[in-house]
Design a protein around this nucleic acid. Sequence first.
DNA 1: GAGAGATGTATTTTT
DNA 2: TACATCTCTC
Length: 693
Amino acid sequence: MTDLENFLNNLDEKLNINQLDAINHKDGPALVLAGAGSGKTKVLTIKIASLIKNKKCGTNELLALTFTNKASKEMIFRISQILSSKLDFPWMGTFHSISYKILRINSELLKGNYNSNFSIYDPTDQLKIIKNIIKINDLDLNKYEPAKIRGKIDSLKNSLLYDEWEFEDDKEEQIIKTYQSKLESLNAMDFGDLILKFYELLTINNNFKERIQKLFKYVFVDEYQDTNIIQFRLINIISNPDKNLFAVGDEDQSIYGWRGANIENILQFKKFYPDTKVYKLEQNYRSTPQILNVSNHLISNNSERLEKNMWTENVKKENVKLWSFDDDREEAKHVAKEILKNLNVFKYEDIAVFYRTNAQSRVLEEELRKANVKYKIYGNISFYERSEVKDCISFLKFIINPDDEMAFDRIINLPPRGLGKKTVEKIKNISIQENENHYKSLINIIEGDILSKKIIKSLEVLRNCIEDFKKNLNEFSSISESFEKFLIDLGYFDYLKDDDKLGNVSEFLNYIAEFELSSETNDISDFLNSLMLSSSTDDMIDSSSFVTLMTVHLSKGLEFPCVYVVGIEEGLFPHSRSMYSTSEIEEERRLCYVAFTRAISSLNLSYCKMRRMFGSITYASMSQFLDEIIECDDLEEINVMFESTSNERVFHYKFGNGFIDTNDNDNFEDVVTVVFDSGAKKKVFVSDLEEIE
DNA sequence: GAGAGATGTATTTTT
DNA sequence: TACATCTCTC
């Protein structure tokens, strides 16, 4: 018996023949096509565990790239469980966090002004810098829209090396190149840079490349269908020359095309790696046959696919339900009511509500709160995007990276201490003249007695607080305590006043304290960047008791016994912005497929005829995706029965006689709900109604 | 220079 | 609607 067979025989977990095949894969490139709920994490973790167990490689010689931090944490946990020992996998993580780690260690190899304390700029920071450049160069903000330029920068970074970039015109080139050199001078990188700079290093520094190639004996990539071109090229270099690349993915779940993900990476895998062994996991262990059947039906309308047929041995339960409503308010009310009704079958944490756009969460939130349903919304504004938390982050960023002008701008007059726009410009100019970082110039100004007494006095406050912070940090080495004292001394708490904001700051301090407990480095830079690179689902706790609300995008990789997918309307899902090309429609369909396949035993779909969007009313019809599945035997259409709640008789020129429904207390202006004698319940304009005696 | 209030404008998905 | 930016007043 081989080591591997021996290892597998002693496992508690049962594996099917295809899963076994994939795990038995010897060296060389492998592509595992793992459909939704087919046990891909099981295959990945057992595969990795067997390599470690049989001493094929060490835990630090294995690169495993996941889509979220949560996924990598879970993998590490499960591998440790299989091998019954707590293991550390330093190179298991998201593309961004692994690239960050590599760049930080090798920062001296980077071109330009970079050092290991570089800052990471988020999309908001990007936009600010771009706007500023356009203004300074006196260009038309309408012709060169900052958001579009940012999109262009991101897509360039997702696909090409810096010197391969091409531009629309000279002005665009000027803006983008200025942006790039600005980031370099500020010792800062955006998300795209993190991966592109790692890749660039591999292409220009042979020594570095060989070191990396030697370090990683095996390369694993999860969610391969959502890798972009640069990630593909990066993986390709790293997994050479042995090509021990083990990629796991599902082309039907590729939903990040708009972010540069290139579905061809998985569709053409065999072309790129001719020796590839392909393994297919087609048995679904998650969902009922009804849910799977409806999902299969839907996705079969796509053409950008590999051949794959999902099936299940699970027992039949309830049919997939399709509800229709007059408007989003009713839909939300219904979801709240159903959740309460189902609490004898499902617990709060078993239930999830998915929607296409973040804006849809508002009505749901209101109705769930009214109905006393406990819920948690993921995504939307993430914690670190709140202004007071951004303030705190900027203080820390500026302290460790005094080149960071974004952070400097934010905190130089915070809390307000009499420094205006003009003064700040002066300080920056001095910094440029002296060719020093902003903090050094600030000290030079104080010591050299340049600028007015008033200004120097207020600069001194900031400097003293920063110096005290550094001193405290050295003495007590507690970031959270030193930082709290810093904020008190600076008068930041007094300035905030607002209880919610103060609460958020103290939560931020707790975050730091937690980080200090769990990390051995105790490094502020590491803390800040782990915060920037974390996703909203990373700290999801399975056992906490509330209903989960999130966009379909965020739901990838998760599963829930009971799922509601709301707002499946033409123009919303598929979204109106993606209705111009078949390939974009196909991505929307995959998105819908992802939503459906999260469900374990109960799947509830719904759409509305009318929806409130940005204050005005829009009308919509059932999504084409619903058209595609409506004939399915496992789908059940349900009509909500209405009862009128008033005696006010009215006549409508088109719909005839009916009663006004006063149950619906949140009618729009000029619009009222009427239950007509035909049984239909409709929202109509008051001006179209006549009172009947 | 600070803060309140008015005005205007853009609204997909996110590491 | 909601958020950023501009304008006005103190």
